[in-house]
Write a protein that binds this DNA or RNA. Structure first.
Lengths: 346, 346
DNA sequence: TTGAAAGCGCTAACAT
DNA sequence: ATGTTAGCGCTTTCAA
C-alpha cells in the first residue's frame, strides 16, 4: 500500500505539500496539486484512516448503533441514515446492539467512540448518564432518548401524534370498540416509562380516546412483545378468550403483521370483523394480505434530521462555526403520514 | 480520555509494561498485571483503536459489506455474521453497498481495508480482480463469488441443491406444470452468469426437471426483478395473459411474497390453484397468508463458515499457524433445509 | 521481569 | 507557495 511519502516522492514534493494538495488546500498551486493528484492516482493511494484519525481525530466515518439488524424497522432506518450520510460525504458503519447493555457499552467504547467522528445511537439499556462516561466526548445523536434531561441532541419518532392519528382513523372508519396491542397499561404508573416509545404511543392513543369521548379501560390494552410470533400467539389467546374489538391499533407494524396472521388463524376477517392499523411503515406492510394500514414514520426525514444534528456537532467540533452560535441541545421529531390500505378499508 | 501513558503512570510502571499487562502477556508478573488492570479500570481506559491499528495493523474489528441493509435476507445474514463474530471476540461493522460499484469501491478502499482486520464481502458489481487492487492485502471472504477462478475464500448459498429440492417438493405435492419466477432463461446463454446466484438456482431447477422427466421450455421461466413490487406486477401480467402453472418456484422469498400478493389480487388461490415455494427462509415467510414454504439457507451455518474461513486467514496473517499449513483458498457451501408451510400444503 | 526507544502514516503549527 | 518538524497513542524489538 502506497503511503503519503511515496506519493510525495513520486510527485517531487514534500509530504506536507502532498497532504495539503490531496485535501484541496488553497495554499497549494493548481499545478502542484495536479501533479500530486496524478501521482496518487497512479500509485492507487488511499489515506490510511487510522493514521489520519490518530493524528487529526477525524475519520469521515460515522457510526449507527441500533437494536437489531434483522428486523425491518431498524434496518430500514439504518439504510436511510446511511444513504443520507453518503450525501454529506460521510461513510457510515452500522452495528447491532442486540438489545444488550453489554453490547451497547462495548460498541460505544470500542468502536464508535474510537473510529467514528460521531454516532447516531438508539439507546436501549444504557442511560444517557452512562453514555456520557463512555462516548469519549465525540458528537452523539440519540434516537428516542427517554430521559427528560436532554444531555444529547435527539430525534424522536412521532409517537404521540402518530398514535393519535391511528386511533382517529379507526374511529373514522367506524370503530367504536378499539383495542391497543403491544403495550402494558401499567407503564402509565411508571414514570420512567412515560417517555419511552411505548409510553408516548400509549399517551397519543389515550389522548385520542379522550378527545373522541371513547371510554376505555385496561381491558382495551393488550400486552405483547414486539415481534410477530408473540403478537400472533397473543391474538390467538385474545380471540379464544372471547374478547373482541372492532378496531385494533398495533404499536408497531411487526406486531400488526403478527396480529393479522393470528386473526386469520382464528377466522377473524380483517377489516370486516376487525380493522387493523400499525405503526412504522415497513415495506412488508404493502404486500401483506390484507395490506396494512399504518402510520408511516418518514425515515428519510428522520435520517435528514439526525444527520443535520450530527453535522452541526461535527462542525462545532471542528471549529467551523461562528462565534456565539447557539450550542444548546436540540430535539427534533420526524414527520409521519397515515397510509390507508386494505386492513382498515370498509 | 485516558491513554496508556496515564495508566502506566497511575500504576507506577512503564508504558511498555502497562501495554503487555493489559493484553495478558505472561511475561508480566501477576502482581504488576493486577496493579495495571486496576489503574486502567479506575481511569476508564480504553485502547485507542486508531493507534493500535496504525502500529500493529490489527483492530479486532471485521467488516461486512452487503447489498442492502433494508432487505430481509441480507440484513438477517449480517445479523447472523455479527452474532457469530461476537462469539469469536470480534466486533463487526456493517456497510451497505447499495448495489453500486462506486459504493463498493469506496467501502473497500476507505473503510474495510483500513479499519478492519478482514472483510466478509458480498460482491455485486466489482470483480475479484478489481477487489485485489483495492483490498489492501487483508483477509477477505467472499459471499457467492461468481468467478470460477477462486482468488478468495468463499461461502456459497446452497443454490443448486436447494433449487433442486424446491422443484422436487413441488413435484411431490402433485405439481406437473411448474413455473420458475425470477430468472431470465437467457442467462443460460451467458457464461459469465452461469455461476451467479440466479444461474446456479436455475441450474438446480433444470437438473430436477430433467431427473423428473418434466419437459420445460422458456415459457416456464418468468423474469422479474427480485423485489416484491416487481414480483407482484409480474404475476398480474402472467395471470392476465392466461398463462398458468400449478406450481411456482420463486428464486427468493421476497419474490415469493410479492407473487403471493399478486396471485391473491387476481383471485388465484394458493396452494389450491397454484403451489408456491420460495428460497432464503426469511422470517416474514412464516407469517404471510398463506405462510410460505421455502428452502431456508441456514444463516447460522453460513455465518459459522464465513467466520471460520476468516479466522483462519486472520491467524495466518498473525503468524499463528504452524509451518506447512495448507493455505490454498477454500470454498464452502452453507446448509439448507426445506420448510413446508401452507403455500404448498395440499 | 521490566524499561527505553523507535516508529506506524498522517496532519498542522511553524518556518522559510 | 512549499518545506521542516513534532507528535497523535500504541506496540514491539532490544537492552538491562
Amino acid at each position: 500500500m502506497a503511503t503519503m511519502t511515496d506519493v510525495a516522492k513520486a510527485a517531487g514534493v514534500s509530504r506536507a505539500t502532498a497532504s495539503y494538495a490531496l485535501r484541496g488546500d488553497p495554499r497549494i498551486s493548481p499545478a502542484t496539486a495536479n501533479k500530486v493528484r496524478r501521482a496518487a492516482a497512479s500509485l492507487n493511494y488511499t489515506t490510511n484512516l487510522s493514521a489520519r484519525s490518530l493524528r487529526s481525530g477525524r475519520s469521515g466515518v460515522i457510526g449507527v448503533a441500533i437494536f437489531e439488524l434483522d428486523k425491518p424497522y431498524p434496518s430500514e432506518m439504518s439504510a436511510a441514515i446511511s444513504r443520507e450520510a453518503a450525501r454529506h460525504g460521510l461513510e457510515t458503519i452500522v452495528q447491532q446492539t442486540s438489545n444488550s447493555k453489554e453490547r451497547e457499552i462495548s460498541i460505544l467504547r470500542k468502536v464508535t467512540s474510537q473510529l467514528c467522528d460521531g454516532t447516531i445511537f438508539s439507546p436501549g439499556n444504557v442511560s444517557p448518564e452512562e453514555i456520557t462516561a463512555l462516548y469519549g466526548g465525540k458528537p452523539m445523536i440519540l434516537l428516542d432518548d427517554i430521559s427528560d434531561d436532554p444531555l444529547f441532541d435527539c430525534v424522536f419518532t412521532p409517537c404521540e401524534a402518530g398514535a393519535e392519528a391511528a386511533i382517529r382513523h379507526l374511529y373514522e372508519v367506524g370503530c367504536r370498540n378499539i383495542g391497543v396491542l403491544g403495550v402494558d397499561y401499567r407503564i402509565l404508573l411508571d414514570d420512567s416509562q412515560a417517555t419511552s416509545v411505548s409510553g408516548r404511543r400509549l399517551a397519543g392513543a389515550l389522548k385520542a380516546f379522550d378527545d373522541l369521548n371513547i371510554n376505555v379501560d385496561e381491558r382495551n390494552f393488550v400486552h405483547t412483545l414486539w415481534d410477530m410470533e408473540h403478537a400472533r400467539a397473543t391474538m390467538h389467546r385474545l380471540v379464544d378468550s372471547g374478547r373482541m374489538f372492532d378496531g385494533l391499533f398495533c404499536l408497531t407494524d411487526t406486531v400488526a403483521l403478527g396480529a393479522l396472521r393470528g386473526l386469520a388463524d382464528r377466522g377473524v376477517r380483517v377489516p370486516d370483523d376487525m380493522a387493523v392499523i400499525g405503526f412504522d411503515g415497513i415495506n412488508e406492510g404493502e404486500y401483506s394480505i390484507p395490506s396494512l394500514t399504518t402510520i408511516e414514520t418518514d425515515l428519510d426525514d428522520l435520517a435528514k434530521k439526525a444527520i443535520e444534528l450530527l453535522s452541526f456537532r461535527l462542525d462545532v467540533a471542528n471549529g467551523d462555526v461562528p462565534e456565539g452560535t447557539d450550542l444548546s441541545t436540540r430535539r427534533l421529531t420526524a414527520d409521519f403520514r397515515l397510509i390507508e390500505r386494505e386492513s382498515t378499508r370498509r
